[in-house]
Design a binder for these strands. Structure first.
Length: 587
DNA sequence: CGGAGCGGCGCG
DNA sequence: AAAGCGCGCCGCTCCG
């Protein structure tokens, strides 16, 4: 593909290592122009350079030539980056205008954001540009997309830079972290989780029986259904319909009010055990059975669609494939390619440690040092068992008021007043209709008009006790949300920093020989350890065996770097449970 | 007939 | 056993 005359020369002048540092463009904005693309370098002082036109297919090549310090600015990573990845090219840094817009628009710490908020064309949810098998069915013509043309991108980038430079430093960091997350999400989708369909099949067959043609119910489920109908004394009993099953249970003397497994297990009746087993197997069959494997892991890779920023707190969501719900019983099907291995790491008690860090609660940090945090709480005599410590702490962060969890919270409040004060304050602000923010500055959404109306009406002279009760309940609901928001959202920020730093460390590892490649991971990842999976506080790195130790070191160093980046030098470590998994050779 | 709502359950 | 946060997806039911 040929470059527009001048484009090649222009970019080289801006990005050649031989040029002076000052002439390297900190940003290159990309967007549609005519039938092709325009690239516009932006200098540190914000002045735009010459507009360079290239053909659409030349983006990856231009990205490959760009200095690693340059940040690519584009409307939406999931719209631009997959094509670059497909050419085997990695972008070091980017600025995702859609994600940044959402953060800056809603943040209580944004300064001078009126013009940005007025640019409503950037208020678009993630466009799930899936290249997977179900893409044809995912098309949603009504869904709004952000603008992808160069002029819109330049204008929005100028608005965002103005807000960022006027606001607290945390927002700049948050926008960078959110953007690198978008890069990681696209790369992990391309690389996929190495998935051994044979192991998956063995698990399914062992639990359910052989696969039946046409996705019919497997033998074990059919047999359980027969047992259950017999024990219910009704050969036609419907097990999958909650109201009908409830009526059948009542007829045989099980007075349950729901069919949840928690409630059913309270009852002593011969039908309970097979019924719980039926529900367990049916869940596996429908959610992660053979049909799921055919659609989501057909060629030895499970490719979930990650949606960065898809949760209000800043956590990622997922779309299709149930990436956030892969059941633990199927974990054995995640297996490295031959000659490769998996480095699996999760952060021990991420959210409580984040709470200790952001509240600067020295006592809680001390309880977490060099140990399992829950054990640390026990050893300081706050509560008496690890299990109690766990439920007390989760209860404190989720706003539990009743049950054993709620009962234990006061003990924590005495032992860790700063940490508990932080979440209690967040809850109070939420109950009063205020907005809370994470450590870096992502803010909770304001209360809905309905919520405000409810609170307003409760203060009216003609309000009934029912009105006031409803308003109180809604206020407490919102308080629990904001209480959790600050912790969950800051944990998501720590995880983004971890991911971003780890990604850079892995990218710096040497390539292995072509003969040792993992071609199904795609051109960008076939010859180098790479991120393969991420879930809130856990990563899986797919690594050539030869560089597994370096990959494991990178995971640990990235966690330390993330902690320093967010919280500076604090006397608190974020402990990892880390294993380098050696899969037995397949027989 | 398709979409919204709900109960239920998987994950953190 | 724990009931308190955030999600996505399943099958069923209800409704227009």
């Amino acid at each position: 593909m040929r470059l527009h005359p001048g484009a090649r020369r222009g970019l080289r002048a801006l990005t050649d290592p031989g040029t002076t540092a000052g002439s390297i463009a900190p940003w290159i904005v990309v967007g549609n122009a005519g039938g092709g693309l325009a690239l516009v370098p932006i200098a540190a002082d914000g002045t735009a350079g010459e507009r360079l036109l290239i053909e659409r297919s030349a983006l990856a090549r231009e990205a490959a030539r760009t200095d690693a310090a340059t940040r690519w600015v584009w409307s939406d990573t999931s719209s631009w980056y997959p094509a670059v990845i497909a050419e085997g090219v990695r972008v070091s840094r980017c600025h995702d205008l859609r994600l940044a817009h959402a953060i800056l628009r809603d943040s209580a710490r944004s300064v001078g954001a009126d013009a940005l908020r007025a640019a409503v064309e950037w208020d678009a949810a993630a466009s799930v540009a899936d290249d997977g098998p179900s893409a044809l069915f995912d098309l949603d013509p009504g869904a709004r997309e952000v603008p992808h043309d160069i002029d819109a991108a330049l204008a929005e980038f100028a608005r965002q830079r103005a807000v960022i430079s006027a606001s607290a430093a945390g927002l700049r960091l948050l926008v960078a972290a959110e953007s690198v997350g978008a890069l990681v999400a696209a790369e992990m989708h391309a690389a996929g989780v190495p998935w051994d369909g044979d192991v998956h099949d063995e698990i399914l067959t062992g639990m359910l029986g052989e696969r039946e043609p046409g996705n019919g119910l497997p033998a074990r489920i059919e047999s359980l259904a027969g047992d259950i109908r017999g024990l219910l004394g009704d050969p036609a009993a419907s097990i999958d319909s909650q109201p009908k099953l409830l009526r059948s249970l009542h007829r045989v003397g099980v007075a349950a009010t729901s069919t949840s497994k928690w409630e059913l297990s309270e009852y002593e009746h011969p039908v309970i055990a097979p019924l719980l087993e039926y529900k367990r197997l049916m869940r596996l069959f429908t959610a992660n059975g053979w049909a799921w494997r055919d659609e989501w892991a057909p060629e030895g890779r499970f490719r979930p669609v990650y949606v960065p920023g898809g949760v209000v707190t800043g956590r990622w969501a997922s779309s299709g494939g149930g990436a956030l719900q892969m059941p633990r019983q199927l974990r054995p099907a995640v297996r490295a390619d031959p000659g490769w291995t998996l480095v699996v790491a999760d952060v021990a008690q991420l959210e409580p440690r984040v709470l200790a860090a952001m509240s600067r609660d020295a006592a809680l940090a001390d309880s977490a040092r060099d140990t399992d945090l829950y054990e640390g709480i026990v050893s300081r005599g706050v509560v008496s068992t690890r299990s109690e410590a766990k439920f007390a702490l989760l209860g404190a962060m989720y706003g539990a008021t009743t049950g054993d969890s709620g009962r234990l919270v006061p003990a924590l409040r005495r032992a860790y007043p700063r940490a508990m004060g932080l979440v209690d304050d967040a809850a109070r602000v939420g109950e009063e209709g205020g907005v809370v923010s994470t450590w870096l500055g992502r803010s909770s959404p304001p209360p809905s008009p309905g919520w405000r109306a409810l609170q307003g009406h409760a203060g009216d002279p003609d309000a009934t006790e029912i009105d006031r009760g409803q308003a109180r309940r809604a206020a407490r609901d919102r308080g629990r949300f904001t209480r959790n928001f600050v912790v969950q959202g800051t944990a998501a920020e720590w995880a983004l920093a971890w991911l971003g730093d780890l990604r850079a460390r892995l990218a710096a590892l040497p390539h292995v020989d072509e003969a040792d490649a993992a071609p199904r991971s795609g051109a960008l990842h076939a010859r180098q350890a790479h991120l393969a999976f991420f879930l809130h506080d856990e990563v899986i790195v797919h690594s050539p065996v030869a560089q597994a130790q370096q990959a494991a070191d990178a995971v640990v160093l990235a966690a330390e770097a993330a902690t320093r980046l967010l919280f500076g030098d604090i006397p608190l470590d974020f402990r990892l449970d880390l294993q380098v998994r050696v899969d037995a050779a397949k027989g």
